[in-house]
Design a protein around this nucleic acid. Sequence first.
DNA 1: AAATTATGCTTGATGATCTTGACCGAACTA
DNA 2: TAGTTCGGTCAAGATCATCAAGCATAATTT
Lengths: 145, 145
Amino acid sequence: MLDDLDRTIIEILVHDARISLKELSNQVGLSSPSVSERLRRLEEKKVIRSFTIDIDPVALGYSLSAIVRVRPLPGMLHIVEKLIQETPEITECDKVTGDDCFVGKLQFRTMEQLDMILDRLSERAETNTSIVKSSPVKRRLPPLS
Amino acid sequence: MLDDLDRTIIEILVHDARISLKELSNQVGLSSPSVSERLRRLEEKKVIRSFTIDIDPVALGYSLSAIVRVRPLPGMLHIVEKLIQETPEITECDKVTGDDCFVGKLQFRTMEQLDMILDRLSERAETNTSIVKSSPVKRRLPPLS
DNA sequence: AAATTATGCTTGATGATCTTGACCGAACTA
DNA sequence: TAGTTCGGTCAAGATCATCAAGCATAATTT
């Protein structure tokens, strides 16, 4: 499905999506129309979901973050899911197997803010919150092999 | 620190980082050199950490993912941290307060692969694994206000 | 086996975009 | 008030992306 050139292109773009086609094609060893066509196909196949920027939450004032595990009270599953989606400080959330139903990431500025957000959830779910102290692994790709 | 124009620029780029400077400056209502200068400063201030692409792990063959909570056995904390960093299938990991020491995200192709990876961790830590069934909140920015 | 088609590449021309430098005005500072 | 800084515009030359045409190779058909 993906060949070595595609993988090279992806690895370069992950680190610098703003690189010019010309420079990218130099690094890949193809002409720019070829690389352009490969990019088009990678997007078409949804391998590349989007071109985006990585923003530092700290720069936006969110100097704290937490992992929240959420177990809805009986009958509350859908309401809780909706509540999570409507809480903009929850910047990602997965629905998982096991006792915890949801595991989410929460960005916040102050403990007061954390408390407010958790209070809203606690009306309809049990929550378990762990404050993030550091991030030993920053977001990265799994092996492309 | 950030004004409305910066926030507009960020919101546009989060959705399409490949937009031309010309188009971006039209949407923002400034000339392109101005927007270019603002971009330079946003990068300089590390508000924008990088321009990157969002890759679909499924397209890379990683059709499964899991949240793993890791509690190192006594004395094993640093070894476990290193082990986590050296496990490329763990695509992000936070060190947190509470009983669990690390919470990570794991991308994998088969249950056998999951089993192998967890076996390696289990020699030095207790783990608790939840398979991801869906993602009610895809990665997004907290409010920029 | 020969002919055909499809795929993926290159080149070179053209038009669009980016960057640079010169300049301007508002807001702060001495 | 005069000077300085900051952030902006405009216009040019430099750079880049895209398109069409053509070529080579590999797979498919006859």
